[in-house]
Write a protein that binds this DNA or RNA. Structure first.
Lengths: 142, 142
DNA sequence: ATCTGTGCAAAGTCTTTGCATTGCG
DNA sequence: CGCAATGCAAAGACTTTGCACAGAT
């Protein structure tokens, strides 16, 4: 149960904090090898998952993409741009525990948490689209 | 742009409708080969994705698992049991467009849609846990 | 006749895992 | 010292793709 405080474990925590905006395992790995080139990707994955289990990190499942890891413990929602694929926090928007209560009452589930992922076109991509097409059509990525 | 109406395409649509509760690509494939053993998995994937792009099916990204496909067009939310992994619709709970409007106003995104995934322990698993442990502890799956 | 869709298998992406070894506690 | 954690590489789960051919329009 007790986790060993290895160098690799500390590096993983530090990297996720440094990268701040929900990096993927790959991004965490790339960051770490800059100062500690001997770490293996398997170890990065193992530490990330262990830290999530311990509740020290959050894990976010992103549609059509690698999982992302979050050092912010407070509950919050996310928004993904269907054009450029960027994935950011929704700022200034409160977590709504009320939703869970309602759904728990309705379904009989013992609620743990809920995630909301909004999808839309970010302001930057809207601007680009207007400049290029005069309109917001065309193929989205997802 | 115009899609050809192939036998395989019809079989994929029929299978997703028949299986009803957001099957994975694998489940769709398994179902189809029972009556049409020559279909290839690649074709199932290609058709599923093409149908999603056409708006005839929904695609749901499930944390820690394969994507699922949904024949229900009306917006709705989902709930996953952290014990047994089952993934079902939240019934009798209205989609909340209001959330999108608020977040759109806050972020400047041009909203497309949003997904909510609730996580908790389903009534069946709660029962089993109580019988076995007298308590709701132990390792969750995710 | 055309040209999209298919079957097949190979490859691609993301993640986990077996095993011998290292090093924290 | 003992046992959890590491490094490495292989394998696993899921999905896409290149190519030659078939079949819908």
């Amino acid at each position: 149960m007790a986790k060993r405080n290895t160098i690799q474990r500390q590096l993983v925590i530090a990297a996720v904090r440094f990268l701040a905006n929900h990096p993927t395992a790959e991004e965490v790995y790339d960051r770490i090898i800059q100062e500690y080139p001997d770490i293996s990707k398997g170890t990065v994955y193992r530490n990330l998952n262990s830290l999530v289990e311990s509740g020290l990190l959050g894990k976010i499942s992103v549609p059509s993409g690698a999982d992302r890891f979050d050092h912010i413990l407070a509950r919050h929602y996310h928004i993904k741009c269907t054009r450029c694929g960027t994935f950011v926090n929704v700022e200034n928007f409160e977590y709504i525990p009320d939703l869970e209560e309602k759904v728990a009452a309705l379904t009989g589930y013992k609620m743990d948490h809920h995630d909301i992922v909004f999808s839309g076109v970010c302001p930057e991509c809207q601007k680009v689209a207007v400049e290029h097409n005069g309109e917001l059509l065309g193929n989205d990525m997802n």
